[in-house]
């Protein structure tokens, strides 16, 4: 069953306090050399049947309206056969 992966992350200019908290924990765990952490979310849609252009266009539309808020977030859409 093909999967469509929608990844959503805050835009670079938006403060990400959760990512910052994770960055702090990495330092405490002894991992050095990490300059920044950005936290996002991922939606994995398992698709019945083939993923055609129409389906992909529909999912891009939903990614831009429901799954992400374009005011503060960017998203990417990836198809895994």
């Amino acid at each position: 069953m093909p999967k469509i992966i929608v990844s959503v992350a805050l835009k670079p200019e938006i403060l990400d306090p959760q990512g910052r908290a994770v960055l702090g924990a990495l330092g405490r765990l002894g991992l050095s050399g990490v300059a920044d952490v950005r936290q996002g979310k991922q939606f994995v849609l398992s698709i019945d049947g083939d993923v055609d252009d129409a389906k992909l266009a529909q999912i891009n539309e939903i990614a831009a309206t429901l799954l992400s808020n374009p005011v503060i977030e960017d998203f990417t859409v990836e198809v895994r056969p």
Binding site: L15, P17, V71, I72
Partner: peptide, 10 residues
């Protein structure tokens, strides 16, 4: 316009 996000201190 704009958005409301996680409090900066969490």
């Amino acid at each position: 316009p704009g958005a409301l996000t996680r409090n900066d201190h969490l």
